[in-house]
Design a protein around this nucleic acid. Structure first.
Length: 326
DNA sequence: CAGGCTTA
DNA sequence: TAAGCCTGG
């Protein structure tokens, strides 16, 4: 289960938001939303974002609080949504479901015993993207005139494709998978306080003297979302073995190991299902008033929670508008 | 999820 | 060097 393993291979540099002015980022929408649901919003009480019929729409606060960050720095987002889930992911999905059930049981126990710290910690681990959360996010983004792209499969793959085509400057995601999808530059930590991190694809290949295929092969050896990985192989060993044997199949043969669907997993990263049916716009003209009504009236979010966010949106959009004439 | 610490 | 466990955010 080595996503952290991939980080240790990745070449990551610090960047300043100031350097991103005038650029476009294809954001992995699910990843971005998840981030908000598990961090920012967990410090806010349920009451402020639960409708009278009990539907949770914490995502709306996340969107309102998260978008200004892009506009204030002259960075135009395009939100890329996941399409179909690969059946290869079934095992992983099932594992996560079981783990979630465990957390939910613990959560209940923590609440009963009045351990609120423990409860909020566990709560963040049981978050999931419901249909309502995805749909209301899309509606809100539309009101705010933020471009949306529908990926045929993985959003990360689609976003990376758009970056490889030079239609956007960056992929925005916390996942390291963008590297496997060949995204030239990935921005991480777009949701957190300080400056983001920049993950550099070519520099990563150079650093370890690997081809793109070999990097994907190394990831498969260490384990990805789609396979377990070989016991005893971490970043160092994976790279060494690939230098020695050339590719995944030769490594597996030399060790007498086997990975199910290795060829499909490879293709999934090297040649993912993508679409050219997307539009990248930088002339964003949000209807802030309509967005505010949508969030606070239609979905009954406590207005206090989004006042500042909407203010920042209004201000930053006026600014980018002016920028175009200077 | 990341980072640190421990053990094999 | 890898992996498991744990904690803080």
């Amino acid at each position: 289960m080595g996503n952290a393993d991939l980080r240790s291979l990745a070449v990551i540099e610090d960047v300043s938001f100031d350097d991103l002015d005038g650029t476009v980022v294809a954001v992995d929408a699910h990843n971005w939303l998840y981030r908000y649901l598990t961090t920012t919003v967990k410090f806010t009480s349920d009451r402020k974002y639960t409708t009278s019929d009990g539907t949770e729409v914490a995502n709306l606060i996340g969107v309102v609080q998260g978008l200004p960050k892009f506009f204030e720095h002259g960075l135009t987002p395009v939100f890329v949504f996941d399409g179909a889930v690969t059946d290869l992911k079934d095992d992983e999905v099932e594992k996560r479901r079981q783990q979630r059930e465990r957390y939910e049981k613990e959560l209940e126990a923590a609440r009963e015993s009045g351990d609120s710290v423990r409860a909020s910690k566990l709560d963040s681990r049981t978050q999931r993207l419901t249909e309502t959360i995805v749909e209301t996010t899309r509606d809100l983004l539309e009101l705010l005139d933020v471009p949306i792209v529908d990926a045929p499969a993985e959003g990360e793959g689609q976003a990376s494709y758009m970056a490889r085509q030079n239609d956007v400057d960056y992929v925005g995601s916390e996942d390291y998978d963008a590297l496997l999808f060949g995204a030239p530059y990935t921005l991480r930590q777009l949701t957190s306080k300080g400056d983001p991190e920049l993950m550099d694809f070519e520099a990563t290949l150079d650093e370890h003297d690997l081809t793109w295929e070999q990097l994907v092969d190394a990831a498969i050896l260490m384990g990805t979302d789609f396979n377990e990985g070989i016991a005893g192989i971490g970043p160092k060993t994976a790279v060494k073995e690939l230098h020695e044997h050339g590719d995944l199949y030769a490594v597996l043969e030399a060790r007498g190991d086997h990975i199910d669907h290795a060829d499909r997993i490879r293709d999934l990263f090297l040649d993912p299902a993508v679409t050219d049916d997307y539009e990248v716009r930088t002339d964003i003209e949000p209807d802030v008033a309509a967005a505010r009504r949508f969030v606070t009236e239609e979905w009954e979010v406590d207005p206090e929670e989004v006042t500042r966010g909407f203010e920042r949106l209004e201000e930053s959009v006026v600014q980018t508008g002016l920028d175009r004439w200077t």
